[in-house]
Amino acid sequence: MEKVLIVDDAAFMRLSLRTLLETNGYQVVGEAENGTMAIRRYIEYKPDIVTMDITMPGCTGIEALKEILKIDPKANVIMISAMGQERLVRDSIIAGAQSFIVKPYNEEPVLKTIKQIVEREIIV
């Protein structure tokens, strides 16, 4: 069972993702409300996959992505962005994100994206 860390400053988004992922067989090992906590939780929980909001107060998702990749260059991070943030999505992919999901999202694209990453990577 793949371990997932959910990072979003909106509690309802974290709850929504947690419910979706746990219902579909993923283990949510932790949550973080900003980039700084995401880095700490990544070190603590060593998740297989991270879902990361881009726009958060303080340390942004892109900044956290860069730090996580310094810690673990093989980290699987999926960025989540609201419509209209195409530049930030592009910047996150350039920084090393595996993929991105646009908010508001439907369940199927989220599960498909995670499945593609899981199948592409051998997660230990």
Rank of each mutant, 00 (worst) to 15 (best):
I80D: 03
V29E: 04
L65P: 01
V102C: 03
D53H: 02
E31M: 11
V77E: 07
N34S: 05
G25D: 11
N24Y: 07
T60E: 08
K70N: 12
R14L: 08
I43F: 01
I80E: 01
E121Y: 07
R40C: 07
N24V: 11
R14G: 05
Y105I: 05
M1S: 13
I93M: 13
L65F: 05
R41H: 00
L20N: 06
R18F: 05
D48Q: 06
L20V: 12
D9Q: 08
V29S: 07
T19D: 12
G96Y: 03
K74A: 12
R90A: 13
I117D: 09
T55R: 12
T55D: 02
V102P: 03
I39W: 05
A82Y: 01
E22D: 09
K103R: 14
R14C: 08
K70M: 09
M13T: 15
A11F: 07
E44S: 14
V124K: 13
A97E: 04
E108C: 01
I39C: 01
P104Y: 11
S99W: 07
E44W: 01
M1K: 12
V89K: 13
A38I: 08
S99A: 15
V124P: 14
V102A: 06
L69P: 02
M37K: 15
F12Q: 10
F12W: 06
R41V: 00
N76T: 00
R18H: 13
G96L: 02
E86F: 03
L20H: 06
V28Y: 06
M37Y: 08
K74V: 05
